[in-house]
């Protein structure tokens, strides 16, 4: 064995280890260089740029924390941050809640063909580009020629201004998001369900537990790591919401449905406030890091692991 095993004590570049060390470093080199150039470097540059005033055409000048002070007084920023948080709460709750319910309802003894057909129908929208489906939904949401209002009209509901009213615009984006992403949450939850041992359910049946009680007392606790994972992924994703709003409402009316990333894009690539856009990017990064840290802390305490 020892003649085969790599002996670290002999040194990474000793004759018997050298080949493996070099191969290992070479194999990860492209990914590592790519990470340094396209992820780590730009990350550091974002921090530096956030301290600058830079419009792409004249030389950047150092402004200290001025960009961050400007953020505090920027009412539009707080508006778009509020919109994004509102969207995140309801989109995440809808996606994860419905996704788990669908997974549980479909994870029963039924004809395999029907089961796959249902899963396929629910999952397919997550494979299709958001821009493509948002364009379709924009037609469906139209006030006068839209299909949704047509059917609502048949049951006597007045035409709804899905996209042009400040009150409804974000809800329409949330509806589209849940329609598109619920199938993905369903599949991940299905994977979680299939890793739960059958023994628990057998025991519950012997005890005569009702199926609703089994769901609350067995399925949900045992699924909690998966649910936590889904909540984290969906929250991070929701804070990046962009395409669907660009298509459906373009942020309007006014700023009623504008999101954080739309605002970053606007500041950086339309107003050319590269420094200010970088400072807001750091806010987005901070949110992402906090969400991840919360998941990390909770997964140690709250989530129930077998």
């Amino acid at each position: 064995m020892t003649s085969i095993a790599n002996d670290a004590a002999a040194g990474w570049f000793s004759p018997q280890n050298r080949k493996e060390t070099i191969a290992g470093l070479l194999f990860i080199a492209p990914a590592l260089i790519g990470f340094a150039v396209f992820v780590a470097g730009p990350m550091a540059a974002t921090v530096v740029l956030s301290l600058m005033k830079y419009d792409l055409f004249s030389n950047p000048s150092f402004v200290g924390l001025a960009n961050f002070e400007a953020m505090l007084d920027d009412r539009r920023l707080w508006k778009v941050l509020g919109n994004t948080a509102f969207f995140a709460v309801f989109a995440v709750a809808g996606n994860v809640g419905l996704g788990v319910v669908l997974a549980v309802l479909l994870n029963r003894n039924m004809s395999k063909t029907v089961q796959y057909a249902y899963r396929a129908a629910y999952f397919f929208p997550s494979l299709v580009g958001l821009i493509f489906v948002a364009v379709i939904w924009q037609f469906l949401f139209q006030r006068d020629i839209g299909v949704i209002n047509y059917y609502l009209g048949l049951v006597g509901i007045e035409p709804v201004r899905w996209l042009s009213s400040a009150r409804n615009a974000l809800w329409s984006v949330i509806i589209l998001d849940i329609w598109k992403n619920v199938g993905f949450a369903m599949l991940i939850a299905t994977a979680g369900l299939q890793s739960i041992s059958k023994d628990y359910y057998d025991a519950a049946r012997v005890d005569g537990s009702s199926s609703l009680r089994t769901f609350w007392q067995i399925t949900l606790p045992l699924l909690s790591p998966t649910i936590l994972f889904l909540l984290t992924m969906n929250t991070i994703g929701a804070f990046k919401v962009f395409e669907s709003i660009v298509v459906l409402t373009n942020g309007g009316p006014g700023d009623a449905s504008r999101s954080l990333v739309m605002y970053i894009y606007e500041q950086g690539f339309k107003s050319f406030n590269m420094g200010y856009a970088s400072a807001i990017s750091l806010l987005l990064l901070t949110i992402t890091v906090i969400v991840t840290a919360i998941q990390f802390a909770l997964s140690k305490r709250w989530a129930f692991y077998e």
Binding site: F35, F38, M43, A45, L49, K240, G268
Partner: peptide, 20 residues
Amino acid sequence: LLLVSLMVPIQTTLVPLFLL
């Protein structure tokens, strides 16, 4: 170190990436 990049969405490094 590579896992850290899971936390860095491209939207946060947009401006430097464009400049690069």
